[in-house]
């Protein structure tokens, strides 16, 4: 029978806190970047102009259909060799996570734009609103409400996927804990608590997504 000893965990509480901070930092940056980039890619993908929609489609497929782990490793190790651009491990994983998730965000936005009643766009057109005004005043405000739940889910995914940054040595939660285990040889306790910490970070987000969904279901 395994002899559980959770007493050791308390000594490493600062490790968990620092790790959680890096995980949150990485995830929040990825959320901001992937939202901004995804919005543009989504709009481009919806465009009637092939010169915009084709590259956008390629972008989405490339980043959705390859593993994030490989994208992280590729950006960290290959980019310096190919382009001479060297990123720190933290920024390499932030960039990889942002690019990867922006492909999903783009699809969420595209689906949202498609779901807006075409009649609303016709009405805007005939009143003289241009494309930009129609997009920002008529389409996106409706899309944002409907897209909030999937976007918040996306944030939960980003928090979980950020653990992959550990492979290139970013001291986020997983890597920090791994490091400690090599010294205290208490993997079962350390990993169990690690899972709990992720849960504490992600559960409020998932809960918020559910609440947002109910709230907007009632309004529209």
């Amino acid at each position: 029978m395994y002899d559980w000893n959770f007493n050791v965990i308390w000594d490493y509480r600062i490790v968990y806190m620092r790790g959680a901070l890096i995980t949150l930092e990485l995830s929040l940056l990825a959320v901001v970047f992937s939202m901004s980039l995804g919005l543009f890619v989504g709009i481009a993908r919806h465009s009637k102009r092939y010169i915009l929609s084709f590259p956008a489609s390629c972008y989405v497929e490339i980043f959705r259909d390859t593993p994030l782990l490989i994208q992280i490793v590729w950006i960290y190790y290959c980019l310096p060799i190919l382009l001479g651009v060297t990123l720190t491990a933290f920024w390499a994983s932030t960039v990889a996570l942002s690019l990867h998730m922006s492909a999903y965000v783009a699809e969420i936005f595209r689906a949202g734009i498609v779901s807006v009643d075409k009649g609303h766009v016709d009405a805007a057109k005939i009143l003289g609103l241009n494309y930009f005004q129609t997009m920002t005043r008529i389409i996106l405000p409706q899309v944002f409400r409907r897209m909030l739940p999937p976007l918040v889910n996306n944030f939960a995914d980003i928090l979980k996927l950020s653990a992959l940054a550990s492979v290139i040595g970013v001291y986020e939660l997983l890597h920090s804990v791994d490091n400690v285990i090599m010294n205290n040889f208490r993997p079962l306790e350390m990993y169990s608590v690690l899972a709990l910490v992720y849960f504490v970070l992600i559960f409020p987000v998932a809960f918020g997504a559910r609440r947002a969904e109910l709230y907007f279901a009632r309004r529209i």
Binding site: G119, D122, A123, A124, I126, G128, P141, Q142
Partner: peptide, 17 residues
């Protein structure tokens, strides 16, 4: 030229937000 025209639709097409 287009601005001379106003149009009303079967489904109203009011902006819900």
């Amino acid at each position: 030229v287009q601005i001379k025209v106003g149009m009303v639709f079967q489904n109203f097409n009011l902006w819900p937000h």
